[in-house]
Structures are given as structure tokens and as C-alpha cells.
């Protein structure tokens, strides 16, 4: 009966998991902390969002709660990544050799 929704839900679940996988590969392959955080942030936002959407298709009665979890993710995920990156930069975590520019370090160098 609800086969269309089931199918859509399954596709969304697989899609979300695929993005999470790409994030995981990114964590391993990226050369330094900042790029790793980048890889982690993007995929751990869209991945769970798609997964939640998939679950919402399979269990429509959970829709509202799932939507709220999604909103929570959207607001908290980038925030935590930003704080991690800032902390890393403040304690002077080295950047990868490919890094072309660091305006933040330049500006901090100017200040006494």
C-alpha cells in the first residue's frame, strides 16, 4: 500500500548513509585538522537530515519530532565545528603544507 513512501524512505536512508560515508573517508584522507573538520561538518549535517527524512517517510507519525531533531542539527552542528576550528587555531594547530594563506595568523601577528 505505502510502497511508494517505503521506497522513497529507503532511497533517502541510503543517500544519507552515503554522505556520512564520504564524510568518514574525508576524515581519514584530509591532511590537517581544519580540513577534517570541514569534511566532518558538511556530511554530518546533510547525512542525518536525509536519514531523518527517510525515517519520516517510513514512519509519518514521527514526522514532527524528526523535523525538530533536524532543526536542532542544523543549528548546533556548524556551531560546534566553528568552536573546534577556533580552538585549534588558538592553540596553534599546524596547517597542511598545501595551505596557501592564513589571514587570521597574519592579523594576529600585527597585534602586540
Amino acid at each position: 500500500m505505502a510502497s511508494v513512501l517505503d521506497l522513497l524512505g529507503a532511497i533517502l536512508l541510503v543517500g544519507g548513509t552515503a554522505f556520512l560515508l564520504s564524510g568518514g573517508i574525508g576524515l581519514v584522507r584530509m591532511p590537517d585538522a581544519y580540513n577534517r573538520i570541514q569534511a566532518g561538518t558538511k556530511s554530518t549535517t546533510l547525512g542525518p537530515l536525509l536519514t531523518l527524512a527517510g525515517v519520516a517517510c517510513l514512519r509519518p507519525d514521527w514526522g514532527l519530532t524528526l523535523l525538530l531533531i533536524g532543526v536542532f542539527l542544523l543549528f548546533t552542528n556548524p556551531l560546534s565545528s566553528q568552536v573546534l576550528a577556533r580552538a585549534a587555531h588558538r592553540v596553534g594547530v599546524k596547517q597542511a603544507p598545501q595551505t596557501v594563506i592564513d589571514r587570521l595568523a597574519e592579523d594576529q601577528g600585527e597585534q602586540p
Binding site: 573517508i25 574525508g26 584530509m30 581544519y34 570541514q38 569534511a39 598545501q98 589571514r103
Partner: peptide
């Protein structure tokens, strides 16, 4: 991001 991490040469040019 998926394209970047999946390509063997890892084509990044990071900076702040």
C-alpha cells in the same frame, strides 16, 4: 566534498 575526498589526487588548496 565527496568528489574531493574520493579523487585519488585529493585536489585541495586550503587557507584562511
Amino acid at each position: 566534498l565527496a568528489t574531493i575526498v574520493l579523487s585519488p589526487s585529493l585536489p585541495i588548496k586550503p587557507g584562511i
